[in-house]
Design a protein around this nucleic acid. Structure first.
Length: 484
RNA sequence: GGCCUGUUGGAGAAGUGGCUUAACUCACAUGCCUUUCACGCAUGCAUUUUCACGAGUUCGAAUCUCGUACAGGUCACCA
């Protein structure tokens, strides 16, 4: 097999979107599985929608995910450069001239307004909206005259009659379209810039792209592209159209959908791990052969097979993502986990009086249960909340047994004399209280927890008290005892 | 409306004619563990052969064929 070359070709219109990221991911996995190259090309032909920094952002988050292009605008292979379509305009021009000369394409002087009227008319008559070929029948003299007047024009392809475009999709199998269902579409816009469907063919061919994995929404673009390959006499790459990612309502994930976070940047900000995102996205529309679901990048590359790509849409399941991310978080060295959480804690609380050790102990307490970095913030609230309040149900519990007051007094007295306020020593005091006050189990732990934290459930008691600190613990104990 | 595609549980899915009594995972429920919470572990989870529905092919179908329904995609001087 010739060397596999695939590409991910985003338009620099914003941050890396989850759908695009997944497209990039599968192209990457495919390339690496077959020891091929993964190319990043920038499709910036929609000048109006390009945003400043869009390309950098795409690159940044691709990099974050660990999807590193072998070739890109930043790392060009001279044989194929440049990698931005707006820098390839002269290349397209050459082919456009050829198409025009051969009569495969023609100039169209219809204005957008005229087109719109025609479109409406066809639609109201129940016809498929399609260019009416008005300008195809212009005489060379008429064309020359209009050009002399400086009228703007687009260049349209003359779609062949009675052709059938068929291909074997790597995912969907045999697919075919008839040329009669396709209108003469625009190759070059009035501003002289090629359309996506045109530029992509020239680029994929001149860059020796062998395989194209893209979203299902491109399925109906494929015959348009194939007709161009045929006109030029070029070999058609292999196509694979992947399922859409849909939301809970089974609708294509739209960038405006507020229910699902759409961009890699948002996941990074919330403290999701790139390895987990990589793993999770690989499971969206693809399934491994065995029963394993947690894969690092290398084993995913190893396990990947395009034959196991699914045909039916996959739903973006936030709960599963959370689970996958939690799996990775648990494996993290504490140091890394601290790094993940710190920005969120710093933003939410005043950490200036806390030592590094204290913060690390605090964070370590929650590593098992947190599913993404920012989630730690509400969990640790009780260690930052200076207002101490006992919730109603807890207060009720405190008054449920006369021995509770005694238990708390015993415990408080033991703590007063405790110099080294660490969890082990605190635990020893709890044990001592158990004997002295004759309280055990729930009747021992629960009163202490409530009296010191105000709540009935929380992490390990000794650890909680250590984190709270001796002064706070004693003060709260005293105050609570006084209410009993 | 035309064209294209899909349809296995709440979700992702495995399964492509008999070894599947429809794997596995998430979610959910219950139990165990734990002072509690969380973690972990265990069990249950497509109720009337069941794989959208109907018909057909076959000794035999979730798996093949046709039709119906539903869902989605696409028909731009966006990509």
């Amino acid at each position: 097999m010739e060397k596999v070359r695939v590409r991910y070709a985003p338009s620099p219109t914003g941050h890396l979107h989850i759908g695009n990221a997944r497209t990039a991911l599968f192209n990457y996995l495919f390339a690496k599985h077959y020891h091929g190259d993964f190319i990043l090309r920038i499709e910036d032909t929609d000048v109006a929608r390009n945003v400043e920094g869009g390309e950098e952002s795409q690159l940044k988050y691709l990099n974050w995910l660990g999807i590193i292009p072998d070739e890109s605008p930043q790392h060009p292979n001279p044989k194929y450069a440049p990698y931005r379509q707006m820098e390839r305009l002269d290349i397209y021009q050459k082919y456009t001239n050829w198409l025009l000369e051969k009569g495969y394409a023609y100039k169209c002087f219809c204005t957008p307004e005229e087109l719109e009227v025609e479109h409406q008319r066809q639609e109201s008559e129940g016809m498929a909206p399609r260019y009416n070929r008005k300008c195809l029948y212009l005489t060379p003299e008429e064309v020359a005259e209009k050009e002399k007047q400086g009228l703007p024009y687009t260049i349209r392809i003359k779609v062949p009659d009675n052709e059938v475009y068929e291909f074997d999709d790597m995912i969907r199998g045999h697919v075919s379209f008839e040329s009669k269902d396709i209108g003469d579409w625009v190759l070059v816009k009035a501003n002289g810039i090629p359309t996506y469907n045109y530029a992509v063919v020239i680029d994929d061919h001149t860059m020796d792209i062998t395989h194209v994995f893209r979203g299902e929404e491109h399925l109906s673009n494929t015959p348009k592209q194939i007709m161009l390959y045929k006109m030029f006499g070029w070999e058609v790459p292999k196509f694979g159209h992947m399922t859409l990612i849909v939301n809970e309502n089974h609708k294509k994930l739209s960038k405006r959908d507020a229910n699902v976070l759409q961009f890699m940047s948002q996941y990074e900000e919330l403290g999701y791990l790139p390895q987990a995102m990589f793993n999770f996205m690989a499971l969206l529309g693809w399934s491994p052969e065995g029963e394993q679901e947690i894969f690092d990048k290398d084993s995913l590359i190893e396990a990947f097979s395009e034959t196991r790509l699914s045909k039916s849409p996959s739903m973006f399941d936030k709960a599963k993502l959370a689970w996958v991310n939690n799996r990775y978080i648990k494996e993290l060295p504490l140091e890394e986990f601290v790094k993940l959480c710190m920005p969120h804690l710093e933003k939410a609380y005043d950490l200036s009086s806390k030592s590094k050790e204290w913060i690390e102990k605090l964070i370590a307490t929650y590593q098992e249960q947190v599913s993404y970095g920012a989630e730690i913030v509400p969990l640790v609230e009780l260690f930052f909340n200076n207002k101490f309040e006992i919730e109603a149900e807890a207060d009720e519990f405190l008054h449920s047994d006369p021995n509770i007051k005694n238990t708390l007094e015993v415990f408080a007295n033991l703590l007063v004399n405790l110099d080294d306020f660490t969890k082990d020593n605190i635990f020893a005091c709890i044990k001592e209280t158990q004997k002295t006050a004759n309280a055990k189990g729930k009747m021992l732990y629960m009163p202490i927890r409530i009296a010191t934290t105000g709540i009935m459930h929380g992490p390990d008691l000794a650890v909680s008290l250590e984190l709270l600190g001796k002064d706070v613990v004693l003060e709260r104990l005293k105050n609570t005892i006084n209410t009993l």
